[in-house]
């Protein structure tokens, strides 16, 4: 097995055996979404109007929730130091860890989102755009989040700091993700929004591992 796949497999195995990561993220997603009807009232028309925004904002926060542990455990027990000295470049390792992180947290979000859409009375025309948007957007969230997680490694109040670093960078994903749903509900093409989400992913795919690996190296120095 190639070192890249080995690392993905190890992270998945750790996530499954330690359990909780996926469940916690989905649990947060569901709970935070359910809070909105209590906050703004149960009126179906109102919920339908803001459903896309609620789903994306809570998905964003749920993705953020699990980021802190992305490198933290490996950093604390010395694994990160050992990994950094493996022949596989650190950039590729970051990519492998992001892939594992997305499989454990992003994918469950995508599965849960349509169900929450039902609860919020999301317009039927919005579902394809919701799924396609999450499919293109959540990997970007993991990738950008990896940079924040690497930068805040070992910082005081790392969790809060991580949100402060990462949330402003999530704004474009949020805008285009919600835009895709609203466009298709309004009878317009969701394609431009989805293409832009794809462009964000295409940009984050090479750049985030680069920045995160640089941050990890300086964290280990």
């Amino acid at each position: 097995m190639s070192p890249f796949r080995l690392l993905v497999q190890r992270d998945l195995r750790l996530a499954l055996r330690q359990g909780g990561d996926a469940a916690m993220v989905v649990g947060f997603f569901v709970l935070a979404t359910i809070l909105f009807p209590f906050g703004v009232g149960p009126e179906p028309a109102l919920l339908q109007r803001i459903a896309a925004g609620i789903l994306w904002v809570t998905a964003l926060l749920a993705a953020l929730l699990s980021l802190e542990r992305l490198f933290q455990a490996d950093w604390e027990d010395g694994s990160l130091e050992a990994l950094a000295l493996m022949p596989l470049p650190l950039e590729a390792q970051v990519l492998a860890k992001c892939l594992a992180h997305w499989l454990v947290t992003g994918l469950p979000l995508i599965v849960a989102a349509p169900l929450l859409g039902l609860l919020l009375n999301l317009d039927a025309a919005g579902y394809p755009a919701l799924l396609a948007g999450l499919l293109l957007g959540t990997p970007t969230l993991s990738l950008i989040g990896a940079v924040g997680a690497a930068l805040s490694l070992g910082a005081r109040r790392g969790g809060v700091l991580l949100s402060l670093l990462v949330l402003p960078l999530y704004i474009p994903v949020l805008i285009f993700g919600v835009g895709a749903i609203e466009a298709s509900i309004g009878g317009f093409a969701a394609r431009p929004h989805l293409l832009l989400l794809g462009a964000l992913l295409a940009g984050a795919l090479p750049l985030s591992p680069l920045a995160a690996a640089a941050a990890l190296r300086q964290a280990l120095e």
Partner: peptide, 14 residues
Amino acid sequence: LHFIGHQEAVKPVL
């Protein structure tokens, strides 16, 4: 190179 530092890089669940 092999580098063995102060920490063992051992995961409790593996």
